[in-house]
């Protein structure tokens, strides 16, 4: 027997195991569900073909324009978040940003000096990192934070939102580049405010970060 046949036979011993036959209808149902979720997210955001610049501006505008700030009424956020998306205590890098928590089932799609895009792994969102619909976006800029104020582990956070998205902002730590780090996340994707505050609090802004123009 020739060597190629030997290797193919060995590979075939693994590949050709007997398996139950799957019903294509189940695959179709999953695919349609993912397509519906994508459509809903796009409709909520009012985007069918989003661009980076437009969404960055919208995200920042949401943060700046919504609910008036009330520094005197800061409320406390519980330390233990609970939501549909599970945060795992595992550090990951998206240079120049570092995260102490990892959202299970979501992955970094793009990292830039002024923004990081994190998308769900289920394939329900665009593979283009410039399309932010249905994804988390972490932004860094110098604009004044505004919105409802919360306190978590001694830091202040500002929350605002509209059009199916919530935006959360906090000032960077003393040993980080000065500015405001923000996160914009889609409502209805399994996130809640407590987990998102914990997630944003876990962001470390590295020296390579550059403020965006939001």
């Amino acid at each position: 027997m020739c060597p190629t046949d030997d290797l193919k036979r060995a590979l075939g011993s693994v590949a050709d195991a007997e398996r139950p036959v799957a019903d294509p209808a189940a695959d179709l149902a999953r695919a349609r569900s993912a397509a519906s979720a994508r459509t809903r997210r796009r409709l909520r955001l009012g985007l069918t073909g989003a661009t980076t610049a437009v969404v960055l501006c919208v995200g920042a505008a949401l943060v700046l324009d919504r609910a008036p700030s009330d520094p005197g009424t800061a409320t406390s956020v519980p330390d233990a978040p609970s939501s549909g998306v599970r945060l795992v205590a595992e550090r990951f890098e998206a240079t120049p940003y570092t995260f102490d928590l990892t959202p299970e089932g979501w992955s970094v799609q793009a990292q830039r000096p002024a923004a990081v895009t994190i998308a769900p792994d289920d394939g329900s969102t665009s593979s283009s990192p410039d399309d932010f619909a249905g994804k988390l976006v972490i932004l860094f800029d110098g604009n004044r934070p505004s919105g409802r104020q919360l306190e978590h582990e001694g830091r202040l956070f500002w929350v605002s939102g509209d059009s199916g998205y919530t935006a959360l902002a906090t000032r960077t730590r003393d040993d980080e580049p000065a500015g405001v780090v923000r996160i914009q996340y889609p409502d209805g994707a399994g996130w809640d405010l407590d987990s998102m505050v914990a997630f944003l609090a876990s962001v470390h802004v590295g020296p390579g970060a550059r403020q965006g123009l939001g």
Binding site: A15, R30, A31, A34, A35
Partner: peptide
Amino acid sequence: LVRTAALLCAGDEAFAEDVVQTTLTRLYL
């Protein structure tokens, strides 16, 4: 696709099935 995934996943059938399902969803989209 399942046979290919089984090889890629070194026989981890559950992982292979996950990979196939994700792939089919992406193909549909």
